[in-house]
Computed example of a mutant assay.
Amino acid sequence: MSQSQSIVLPRVSVEPPPPPVPIRATREPVRVALIGVGLVSRDHHEPGLRLDPRARLAAIADADAALLERRRVEWSDGEPIKTFTVERLPELFADPEIDAVVIATPNHTHKDLAIAAAQAGKHVMCEKPLGLDAHQARAMTAAAEAAGVVNMTAFTYRFAPSMRYLRHLLRNGDLGEPRHFRSQRFLDLPETSWGWRQYKATAGAGDLFDMTIHRLDFAMDLLGPLARICGAVARFAPRDRDASGNPCAPSEVDDWSALIGEFRRGAVGVWEGTTLAKGYHVGGYGHEWAEVNGSEASAVYRMHEPNTLLLGRHGGDLEPIAVPNAFLKPSGSPRDPAQGKPATVFRYDLMWEFVTAIVEGRPAVPSFRAGLNAQIVADAVLVSHQRGSWVEVEPVSLA
């Protein structure tokens, strides 16, 4: 895909954050607050925290007072849990008995919450996307690094066992020279309202920021930074009714996204995501297929079967192989890979990494910088769609 030297492509980049301040280790137990106690905290963050003997749930906060009280009762385990309404969040950030926060709130609140937490000296993990655009993500990254706190983007799928094994095969050269990356993320969701997720002011974008951004992150983790991108988004479902049939303002964001990218190291990639793929329910997990074709072999990760990798070589077929035990979980994680639903329980290791980085006084992986780089590319997709052209991207260093 060579380009003429006479063509000047639009460019999406942000000023890199200044060098980070060194991180200091925090004593055990690490006292964590969950800000936003909806489904993602219920299904992923709280169970992961409960497994870790080095940490405990010290506080919770939410805009819904009834949900907040219900979670306090559900999650109490002998230790008192402080509760904070949204209006009292400054008290949470000032509380010396809280070491770290997890932000699982609507997208438009991420920037201010993360900056306030960092400036108060709290370690912070934030759901994706970090902000409504890369400039917000850059401000969050700069604030966290200037404060010398652990910062982490909740890119859950990096922790899937088959993704961890695929990364190992690439690093080890077992696939040969990487040539192609391919991602499909198809969901069969109802066409009713998404609430705040369907408005630009509160979500930024739809499928692109909610689902495809994960795939941008792990593609760059596997194959290195992207150089340029072209893409498109579309909206098919009006979402002008809620689940009860009551009218609401129609959706403003995409429910389909697709893009083509060129990696700086020479490989190419394609991504497609949709929430409207009828018949792709797959037990509620949806269809996920992420493939790397190398000069020697091809390998495929599938989220609904995360303990199995598909592997094939020239002249043969893709065959399922069990992920070796060493890659089923991070070293030291207390999680038992034989317990629970495989497509759910690997997500608990996200919290394990966050707490480990805090205890060891080191950067977490993936950091806010990884979230910033994914946001730079996602922003470029919107620019590409608007202009109908390729867009150059300039990621920031992860170091």
Rank of each mutant, 00 (worst) to 15 (best):
S298M: 12
A378D: 08
W256E: 14
G371D: 03
G131L: 09
A326P: 04
M125V: 10
Y348I: 09
Y165S: 02
I7E: 10
T212I: 07
F327E: 08
A94W: 02
K200V: 08
T156V: 15
P342F: 09
P10M: 09
R171Q: 15
D64M: 07
F236N: 14
L166A: 12
H304P: 06
R11M: 14
F159A: 12
D43L: 10
Q136F: 04
R241E: 10
L130Y: 13
S162R: 06
L92A: 09
L92T: 03
E288C: 04
I260M: 08
L130Q: 04
I115T: 00
R302C: 03
A378K: 08
R138G: 02
D242V: 04
D221N: 09
S367W: 07
R264L: 13
P47H: 11
A326R: 11
N293I: 12
D133W: 10
N293T: 12
C126D: 01
T308H: 12
G269S: 15
D207P: 05
G231I: 06
R24Q: 14
A219H: 07
A227W: 07
A380M: 07
V12M: 14
N172E: 15
W352V: 08
Q375W: 09
H304E: 11
F159T: 08
V102A: 08
K111Y: 00
